[in-house]
Simulated scan of single mutants.
Amino acid sequence: MAHLLGHPGCMASLQADLRDLQGAIADVSSRTGPARFPSWKFPNKVSCELDLVVLLERYSHAEGDPEFSQHAHVVLLELVIDR
């Protein structure tokens, strides 16, 4: 499975999953209020205040830079845990 690390298709799928998760979180939060807990990935921030749009843009596949793409892929996986 390591050969898929940084694969653009896998990363796009993870980004779509994160958008779906964020939508579900927003739906629940609109009824119950935000859950104000520290982010697992960014412990100095509150998880409900993370700007997911910016993070998804920042951590996307970089053509010609496999090391960054692999790093970004790991960050996306960590963001799934954080959500």
Rank of each mutant, 00 (worst) to 15 (best):
55 L>A: 12
54 V>H: 09
72 A>S: 07
61 H>Q: 11
56 L>M: 04
67 E>K: 02
43 P>C: 14
33 G>K: 01
39 S>G: 05
32 T>I: 02
36 R>I: 03
55 L>M: 14
64 G>W: 08
74 V>M: 02
48 C>Q: 09
56 L>G: 11
34 P>H: 12
71 H>F: 08
45 K>M: 15
70 Q>H: 06
49 E>V: 05
46 V>L: 11
32 T>M: 02
48 C>L: 01
52 L>V: 14
49 E>D: 15
66 P>G: 04
36 R>F: 02
64 G>F: 10
64 G>V: 12
31 R>F: 06
42 F>G: 05
62 A>H: 13
50 L>H: 05
58 R>Q: 15
70 Q>G: 08
64 G>T: 13
53 V>P: 01
49 E>M: 01
75 V>K: 02
40 W>L: 15
72 A>G: 00
31 R>M: 11
44 N>L: 12
56 L>C: 09
66 P>F: 10
35 A>P: 01
70 Q>V: 05
67 E>A: 11
72 A>H: 03
66 P>C: 07
63 E>I: 03
51 D>A: 06
61 H>A: 12
35 A>Q: 11
35 A>G: 07
65 D>G: 02
74 V>T: 03
51 D>M: 04
40 W>H: 13
54 V>Y: 05
60 S>A: 15
48 C>H: 07
62 A>P: 03
46 V>A: 10
55 L>Q: 08
65 D>E: 08
49 E>N: 14
34 P>N: 14
69 S>M: 05
62 A>C: 05
64 G>L: 09
51 D>Y: 00
27 D>P: 00
60 S>N: 11
52 L>K: 10
63 E>W: 04
51 D>P: 02
33 G>P: 00
53 V>A: 15
56 L>R: 01
71 H>S: 07
60 S>Q: 14
39 S>T: 04
49 E>W: 03
37 F>K: 15
35 A>M: 09
45 K>S: 13
69 S>P: 05
40 W>E: 13
33 G>R: 02
40 W>R: 13
45 K>C: 13
36 R>Y: 01
56 L>Y: 07
73 H>R: 01
34 P>S: 12
31 R>H: 04
76 L>A: 00
48 C>Y: 08
65 D>A: 03
68 F>D: 05
76 L>K: 02
69 S>G: 00
63 E>H: 09
50 L>P: 06
50 L>W: 07
34 P>M: 12
32 T>C: 03
27 D>M: 04
53 V>G: 06
44 N>H: 12
32 T>Q: 03
69 S>C: 05
37 F>C: 10
27 D>Q: 05
27 D>I: 06
31 R>S: 07
28 V>H: 00
